[in-house]
């Protein structure tokens, strides 16, 4: 039934007013959204934003991307552009209204950070060690890793975080060797 409700509304939305077909930028934005949504939400969540706010931020960022493309602005490194804009929006959101917007009732009800003990027990010792190392990393290092895992180049990450290329590479190598060392000691 829930699915039916979806199909119905989506069909209606695409109904008579298909101005979207005339705009290639719009399709490009939707396509990129499909590709980047999950890593982007993970990244924003890692910044400390509840999932439903991450979703809002992503929506805003991709709407801004449409504007960016329609204005004929540079289209190289669009994923990095999306991450940078989203990051700025997220930080603003966290900063200005942590009480009001970021913790509204919908968010409070959403299943967030379900640290289920049985589930945790199922993980291997190595995984637990790695998780502990990740948790102990400096937030900046953690972000670098996450962005690299999302497929961004080091240069792109430097652009997103507004730091030098060298510092990004140093962060990643530091974090990776820490993880590798911790897990190899374990064995």
């Amino acid at each position: 039934m829930a699915d039916n409700a979806w199909i119905q509304s989506v069909r209606l939305a695409r109904g008579p007013a298909t101005a979207s077909a005339a705009c290639p930028e719009q399709e490009e934005v939707v396509h990129l959204f499909g590709e980047l949504r999950v890593p982007l939400l993970r990244y924003l969540h890692g910044l400390g934003l509840p999932v439903c706010d991450c979703e809002d931020v992503a929506q805003d960022a991709f709407l801004a991307l449409l504007r960016h493309l329609r204005a004929g602005k540079p289209r190289d490194h669009l994923p990095a552009w999306v991450f940078r804009v989203s990051r700025n929006l997220a930080l603003k959101c966290i900063q200005q209204t942590s009480a009001q917007r970021c913790l509204d009732e919908d968010c409070a009800n959403a299943p967030d950070r379900a640290a289920n003990p049985e589930e945790q027990a199922a993980h291997s010792q190595r995984e637990r060690t790695t998780r502990a190392v990740i948790a102990a990393l400096a937030p900046h290092d953690r972000q670098c890793l996450q962005l690299r895992a999302a497929g961004l180049s080091y240069r792109a990450i430097a652009g997103v975080l507004d730091v030098s290329l060298g510092s990004v590479v140093a962060c990643v190598s530091r974090a990776l060797s820490r993880i590798a060392r911790a897990t190899s000691q374990e064995k």
Binding site: S20, V30, G34, Q59, L63, R67
Partner: peptide
């Protein structure tokens, strides 16, 4: 541990706001 909602809803929402924009 932190499941994300399926993509269909947010994608439809994005399409709608792009259309309106």
């Amino acid at each position: 541990a932190v499941p994300l909602p399926p993509a269909a809803g947010p994608t439809a929402r994005l399409r709608a706001s792009l259309d309106s924009a």
